[in-house]
Amino acid sequence: MNPTATPEKARIVILISGSGSNMVAIADAVKAGDINADIAAVICNRPEVAGLQKARDRDLDTAVLDHKGFTTREAFDQALMELIDSYDPDLVVLAGFMRILTPAFTAHYHGRMLNIHPSLLPKYQGLNTHQRALDAGESEHGVTVHFVTEELDGGPVAIQAVVPVYDGDDALSLQKRVQVQEHVIYPIAVKWFTEGRLTLSQGTARLDGQPLPDHGLQLRS
């Protein structure tokens, strides 16, 4: 073994469904050298969304697999697995990928698939998180990066960013403030994973071998 050999870079596949803002944050961190990895592909389940052009503008390989062309969720997920695996990724990143995934899919990528969710999980799984937080009178809200498991938005948490809820906030103003933090913490989690620091073991997210608390590492803005 050559002790001076450069380790192979981790290969990342990013899945998007829309604007791709988190994909851009990760891609820009890779380009800047903050994440030592290669983005093997950006895959989208909807043709001609803005995120695809943003990926092309960054000279990233893109692929479209339109879920409307499949009669069942299982058939789509099987085709998606085959497409993802053709790029031989070390990590699959869900960046605004708006699909509920089948158990077979999540099991296939167990321990090597991350998702970002706009709430402080386990609060507000699912949709409309910002309005639900406001309706509940929360004083804090935020965003979570977690490992993907069969439970929707229920996998072990790696990192969260906490933002205050201000008087006069509406869902849009809160969303914008949360999204700023999304673009901070998702590249951090991806960096940790590609460096071998972030792992999933025995149902627990671990950083540098140490179990993370249920809320993961928390950053406050």
Rank of each mutant, 00 (worst) to 15 (best):
F76A: 00
D28L: 06
R11D: 03
G20P: 01
S21R: 05
V42S: 01
V24R: 02
G69Q: 08
D34W: 10
F76H: 03
V42E: 04
E82N: 14
N22G: 11
G69D: 05
I84P: 00
D77T: 03
N22Q: 09
I14N: 00
A75V: 09
I16W: 01
D77M: 07
K68R: 15
A10W: 11
L83M: 13
P7N: 11
G51Q: 07
E48H: 15
D59W: 08
E48R: 15
V30E: 10
F70Q: 04
K54Y: 07
L65N: 01
N36R: 15
V13M: 11
H67V: 11
E82W: 06
A10G: 11
R56L: 13
E82M: 13
V64L: 05
R56P: 00
M23D: 03
T62K: 09
G18K: 11
P7D: 12
A79Q: 12
S17I: 08
D38Y: 05
A75W: 00
D59T: 12
G18F: 04
A29D: 08
G69T: 01
G20L: 06
N45H: 03
R11H: 10
D77R: 03
D77W: 00
L83F: 07
L83C: 05
A29F: 14
I84Y: 03
E74R: 10
P47Y: 03
T6M: 12
D59K: 11
I16T: 03
H67C: 07
